[in-house]
């Protein structure tokens, strides 16, 4: 479902990703952990082309993009969009559209991008809002919602495009601790339904419970990977052990 080959990326000649390889089957939930600045967010943003990789290759559900240059032709731009349509993205800062109601936030992209009729888009939106527990908020504006509610709407908005995989970029980091659980509950539900997920997070509990595989990023490389019981229980690398120990003492990562 997701194949990443030799992905590398630098910002102002500072290497952030140094040849990442990653393969993920359909229905797998993969959690990426690692210290700040290790490149985990950049990796996620490269997958749906918000950052353009300097080199390497990304394949999601049989759409492949080669890194190295921004899209130049209409065909290349279309391929970029095809890749994005296969990957739903949830941001740390929600990024809901403040000028639209909850319902319109969810229906706008299906209507505009996929030419779905207004009725069908609305039907989809109502189903998704029920799923994230916000069916009573259709007419509200984002500013009238709590952070946790906003993030749940953002998840519904991404799901409305019926993506093949969901990318979560620290979805709970901007939330107060008491609001995190409602978002994590929605994510657990998605994982149980068999959604292919790639989650950058500091929520170790979530990683332990839900991840099929945990990737530990450090210095732009995957320093260690494996099932959660291995990475958390008996890490092979000293750096991983150190990070996990610190997380356990803090309750969450740095």
């Amino acid at each position: 479902m997701i194949i990443v080959e030799k992905l590398s990326k630098s910002f102002n000649s500072v290497p952030v990703l140094q040849g990442i390889d990653h393969a993920q089957r359909q229905g797998q939930a993969v959690v990426i952990i690692g210290p700040s600045g290790c490149g985990k967010s950049t990796f996620l943003r490269c997958l749906n082309q918000l950052e353009l990789a300097d080199a390497g290759r990304i394949t999601i559900d049989s759409v492949t993009i080669e890194g190295g240059h921004p899209p130049r032709t209409a065909a290349e731009r279309d391929r970029q969009r095809q890749l994005r349509l296969r990957a739903g993205m949830v941001f740390q800062s929600f990024n809901l559209f403040p000028h639209l109601t909850v319902l319109d936030n969810i229906t706008v992209a299906p209507r505009v991008v996929q030419d779905v009729t207004a009725e069908e888009a609305e039907q989809r939106a109502r189903l998704l809002l029920r799923k994230v527990g916000l069916e009573h908020k259709t007419g509200a504006y984002p500013a009238q919602l709590s952070g946790g509610q906003q993030q749940r709407v953002a998840i519904a908005r991404a799901l409305a495009m019926q993506p093949k995989v969901m990318l979560f970029d620290e979805p709970t980091s901007a939330l107060d601790p008491e609001l995190r659980e409602e978002v994590l509950r929605v994510m657990r539900g998605l994982a149980e339904e068999g959604m292919t997920m790639l989650v950058v997070t500091h929520e170790m509990q979530f990683a332990r419970e839900m991840a099929d595989q945990v990737l530990f990023f450090d210095g732009g490389l995957i320093a260690e990977s494996g099932p959660p019981e291995q990475v958390f229980g008996s890490p092979l690398q000293e750096r991983t052990r150190e990070f996990v120990r610190r997380c356990n003492s803090n309750g969450r990562g740095s």
């Binding site: 918000l50 994005r84 941001f91 990024n95 559209f97 505009v112 991008v113």
Partner: peptide
């Protein structure tokens, strides 16, 4: 972030401008 969210939803540059 507004532009990024719209692009991530598959909107073109022009749709992003127009809608968001």
């Amino acid at each position: 972030g507004q532009t990024e969210a719209a692009l991530a939803l598959g909107m073109t540059r022009w749709q992003t401008l127009q809608q968001v």
